[in-house]
Design a protein around this nucleic acid. Structure first.
Length: 274
DNA sequence: ATACCGACCTGTCAGC
DNA sequence: TGCTGACAGGTCGGTA
């Protein structure tokens, strides 16, 4: 479900709510799919740790943890890394509230509240690490125009497939790939190595603008996305391509087309995008 | 090395 | 009402 803007919104909300909290105990469910580290290692790493902060890296939520006594030596730093997949949620809840179906982890906090990971489709992943995590690819919000162009210049795959490839650029998913290509005026099926310098430059700007505007709007709520406070995002109201098949292009009135690229539903304007 | 495609899961919705 | 199939914001592994 969530792409960079949604994960950023969620991570910021979680940071506000749980930074500085200590995790007292952890319950891990028995479904193996969400666990990239063993249940025992996750529990061992989280229990007793203090949450220094919560941030986003690519589409991952990173909880920076510190174990051990507050000021003494012997402190170790770890990270709890959460990927929400398509349907994952990370909720901060009062302990007496109903535990939703498909809850796979509960971290009980010193304040009495609980951090709950809920994921019906189990495409999400939970992992702990003991060394720095930088994500699989480059950060779209900070990459230079030159480095951005380098990622794509020599590749033969459709540009949309490469925008979705997290080991190149991490954070862009299906919605923001379509929205970025629309703004850049580039067709999703164009082979990346046929894009001109100008088109790559436009795409670089488009990706950053789309992501920044979406973050400002709190992300896109297409079906059920809500942030850490249970608020829906508003960026779906500003989509120009995604989900608009058959509707008139907002620029030229041509009907938006829907095709499949890289196995994903793909929306574009046949007139504005070349 | 690179690119495509099915598999992984559950929920929802359209169509019959 | 209830069934079936398609589809969904993501990624991985096998195959060509």
């Amino acid at each position: 479900m969530p792409e960079l803007p949604e994960v950023e919104t969620i991570a910021n909300g979680l940071h506000k709510r749980v930074a500085g909290e200590r995790i007292e105990s952890v319950w891990v469910g028995n479904k193996p799919e969400p666990l990239k580290s063993s249940a025992a290692e996750i529990a061992r790493t989280l229990e007793g740790a203090r949450v220094d902060g919560v941030r986003r890296v690519g589409k991952h939520i990173v909880f920076d943890l510190q174990q051990g006594n507050r000021n003494g030596r012997g402190q170790t730093v770890s990270q709890w890394i959460v990927h929400l997949g398509m349907t994952g949620r990370m909720l901060v809840a009062a302990p007496d509230t109903e535990i939703p179906k498909h809850t796979h982890l509960i971290a009980r906090l010193a304040s009495g509240r609980e951090l709950r990971f809920v994921d019906p489709r189990r495409f999400g992943r939970l992992e702990v690490r003991h060394s720095g995590f930088n994500g699989p690819g480059a950060e779209p919000l900070t990459i230079s125009a030159e480095d951005f162009a380098h990622l794509f210049r020599k590749r033969a795959a459709p540009i949309k497939a490469l925008l979705l490839n997290q080991s190149l650029l991490h954070g862009v998913g299906n919605i923001y790939a379509d929205e970025s290509l629309f703004r850049a005026g580039v067709r999703p099926r164009r082979r990346a190595n046929t894009l001109t310098r100008t088109e790559l430059a436009r795409l670089h700007v488009a990706v950053r603008e789309v992501l920044k505007e979406a973050i400002a709007a709190g992300g896109s709520s297409v079906s059920d996305y809500v942030d850490a406070d249970g608020e829906e995002g508003l960026f779906q109201l500003q989509h120009r391509a995604y989900g608009r098949e058959g509707q008139p292009c907002l620029v030229c009135k041509t009907k938006i087309k829907k095709i499949v690229v890289a196995g994903r539903g793909t929306h574009y304007c046949p007139r504005c995008q070349k």
